[in-house]
């Protein structure tokens, strides 16, 4: 069902995406890169959620790492301390960050201006502090260990290719859900809020409720990423859920393009690649330290905001569209009317 002039999910994009997931481990076999690709997938889930929040609800979260951490620690405590099955703790690892987002959104009922950015910044610091100080439950700064591995049909999902497929399977689900939401009436309502909140609410769109729902969804996605991260490794520590991580997620969305589900995904991949490159160069040149990474992310944020405010993916798509329209115009000087178009389809 093709509706010309309305944003819709392009399924061929999803097909290409699935093919890329399947082909990657055949081409690249070093375990280092498989592990990195698995991490990239975990980050992509968070970036897609944050991209929805920034691009469609027009809100910024500076504390996405907090939801990520809460998800990871929730499942760690439930499985390692209480002995739950990881599959049973999955919904809880989604629910707890979502509830946290709900209460935060509820107290700031309208989620307007930069209040959410400030509040999530504070949340990030509080959650990190609690993870470090709550030694009795979280084992403090040294990290929580003994997290069980996932198993499916009696088979353990080991780190490496099996876990790579598990993570990217979840990325696929998150991607499809997000694309479909964005291209539905809910997505249209969200995009309208972004353009003019006052007109949107005059059309009967409950703008506050939609923004809140997207915020909750982004928190749940981060929780899912936390669950995947926890069960990938034997141990986790609070250092993975700092303010730096939140900024990293922000950089992914800004680079790839907020307001585009694909953009967030691509941004996550690019930022991860830059990280690996810096790391590899650092092994050869002693003056490149791990802090250089943050300098580069900062530079990227500045450059993108100045030269490519829409982000990489939408800019490239616009460029392609413009050049293809020009080509069509060259071919025929007669403008195409919608009637002719619908006949030709």
């Amino acid at each position: 069902m093709k509706l010309q002039g309305v944003q819709q999910t392009k399924w061929w994009g999803v097909v290409v995406f699935i093919a890329a997931i399947l082909i990657f481990p055949l081409v690249v076999t070093q375990s280092f890169f498989i592990t990195q690709a698995t991490f990239a997938g975990i980050y992509a889930i968070i970036a897609i959620g944050l991209g929805l929040l920034m691009g469609y609800a027009g809100q910024i979260s500076l504390g996405q790492a907090a939801f990520y951490g809460v998800g990871a620690y929730t499942t760690s405590i439930l499985t390692a301390t209480w002995g739950w099955s990881p599959w049973l703790s999955l919904p809880i690892a989604l629910l707890v960050p979502a509830l946290l987002a709900f209460f935060m959104g509820y107290t700031m009922s309208r989620l307007s201006g930069y209040y959410l950015a400030m509040a999530t910044l504070a949340l990030g610091i509080i959650v990190h502090g609690l993870l470090v100080e709550g030694k009795g439950i979280t084992m403090g700064a040294s990290g929580f260990y003994g997290i069980p591995q996932l198993s499916l049909f009696g088979m353990t999902i080991n780190q490496g290719v099996p876990y790579y497929f598990l993570v990217w399977f979840f990325v696929l689900i998150v991607l499809i859900l997000s694309l479909n939401i964005v291209h539905s009436r809910v997505g249209r309502a969200l995009r309208s809020i972004h353009d003019s909140e006052i007109a949107s609410s005059s059309m009967g769109v409950n703008t506050g409720r939609y923004k809140m729902q997207v915020f909750i969804l982004s928190a749940a996605f981060a929780g899912l990423a936390g669950w995947l991260f926890a069960h990938m490794s034997y141990s986790i520590s609070p250092s993975a859920f700092t303010f730096d991580a939140s900024i990293l997620f922000l950089a992914m969305v800004v680079l790839g393009g907020s307001g585009s589900v694909w953009g967030a995904l691509i941004g996550a991949l690019l930022i991860r690649m830059i990280g690996i490159t810096v790391h590899t160069l650092g092994e050869q040149f002693s003056f490149i330290t791990s802090d250089s990474e943050h300098v580069i992310y900062g530079l990227i944020l500045i450059l993108v905001v100045i030269f490519m405010p829409k982000g990489l993916f939408p800019t490239v798509i616009d460029w392609f569209k413009n050049t293809s329209i020009k080509r069509v115009e060259k071919k025929s000087s007669v403008p195409v009317t919608p009637i002719e178009r619908s006949v030709s389809e």
Partner: peptide, 29 residues
């Protein structure tokens, strides 16, 4: 947003169209 469902709608003097959406998408909102 609760007045609209009662059957009141409006236009804006300073134009509040959803400019990043297509014409038909505006109407669909």
């Amino acid at each position: 947003y609760k007045v609209a469902p009662l059957g009141i709608s409006r236009t804006f003097q300073n134009l509040q169209v959803f400019k990043n959406m297509t014409v038909i998408e505006n109407v669909m909102v």
